[in-house]
């Protein structure tokens, strides 16, 4: 009887092991299927994903940057509006940049909540351009860029209300689906609250991200600039954002025009409170997204930009280590 009982116990144990092995096999197979399905959803995420700190490619220093041996930039950002359909010198610089770094494309004229219909011809050209640039996502600003038939070549705040949320979300969804790329929208600097506004800006941004099912390009300097211009707490603003949706961060310098008015110039070094806000934000995030330094006016020699990139890199490392 004892032998039978032992045999039964062994048989039970073997059956248990076989079941466990089968479950593991199923689990492995299921995981593989899930990974495959996930990979199919994000086909372009395979190689050359931007990370670390990067710089906006400006003609003033592009030639020097693409040919320098050592740089602190680990990716570069361009505006398709400056390169699309363009040959010659610019095309060569872009080709050299693409050889060297991951390139991120950041639109300037998306007019993501505007009244004018989406420009399908432009979007078709843009889609090809983004494919050629091998990008992982596309970003543009959550603002007006076009005003009743005029291309302003600037970023104008939207009225913060539900109607604008719906309008922006619908257009972002359309653009995102047409481009077949994840899209990130950027919070913009603002100088007045548009008529009809009835939401906090951070709630507006979060609502658009949620409703459009898109990502966020979080511009830390813009948050700080607006916190002074409208007198709110920048950290509370960050607290209200869906930080898990942040694909990229922008950081830049600004100009203090008066006690309660900052202008987002991208023409100076990053101010200390903006570094602090960056650090605060990074400590709340699970991983550090790629961080881009924007320098678009009053552009110093490349060596100074490199120094600022180095400062930024160290700051990011320290913030993250502390987190």
């Amino acid at each position: 009887m004892k032998a039978n009982a032992d045999l039964n116990a062994v048989a039970k144990r073997d059956a248990k092991r076989a079941n466990a092995a089968a479950r593991r096999k199923d689990l492995v197979a299921a995981t593989k299927t899930r990974v495959k399905a996930l990979a199919a959803k994000i086909p372009a995420m395979a190689k050359n994903r931007p990370s670390g700190v990067g710089i906006g490619l400006r003609l003033q220093f592009a030639e020097e940057l693409v040919s320098t041996k050592a740089t602190n930039a680990s990716f570069v950002e361009i505006a398709p509006e400056n390169y699309l359909g363009v040959g010659g010198y610019r095309a060569r610089l872009l080709a050299m940049a693409k050889e060297r770094w991951p390139v991120v494309c950041h639109g300037l004229c998306g007019d993501l909540a505007g009244a004018a219909p989406l420009d399908q011809e432009y979007l078709t050209e843009l889609k090809q351009f983004l494919r050629d640039a091998d990008v992982h996502w596309y970003s543009d600003h959550l603002c007006y860029t076009h005003l009743a038939g005029v291309e302003t070549h600037d970023l104008i705040a939207l009225p913060l209300h539900e109607g604008a949320v719906r309008r922006a979300a619908k257009r972002i969804r359309e653009v995102q689906s047409f481009l077949e790329l994840p899209m990130a929208i950027e919070n913009v600097s603002a100088y007045m609250r548009m008529p009809g506004s009835e939401m906090r800006e951070e709630d507006f941004v979060a609502a658009v991200v949620r409703e459009a099912d898109c990502h966020l390009l979080l511009d830390i300097n813009n948050v700080y600039v607006n916190s002074i211009n409208f007198g709110f707490d920048a950290k509370s603003y960050v607290d209200a954002l869906p930080l898990e949706r942040v694909l990229q961060i922008h950081i830049a310098g600004h100009h203090r025009e008066s006690e309660d008015l900052l202008i987002d110039t991208h023409g100076a070094s990053i101010a200390d409170p903006v570094y602090d806000l960056l650090c605060y934000t990074l400590r709340k995030m699970a991983a550090v997204p790629p961080i881009l330094l924007e320098r678009d006016s009053n552009i110093p020699p490349l060596i100074e930009i490199e120094q600022e990139l180095e400062t930024l890199r160290i700051c990011v490392e320290q913030c993250h280590a502390r987190a």
């Binding site: 505007g114 009244a115 038939g149 009225p159 008529p195």
Partner: peptide
Amino acid sequence: MQELEQALRDLVFKRDPAWLVGIA
């Protein structure tokens, strides 16, 4: 929002701007 765009266009581009009411 279309009206607001037109108002902003006038504010920005008209030589004699049409100022928005209630905003500094």
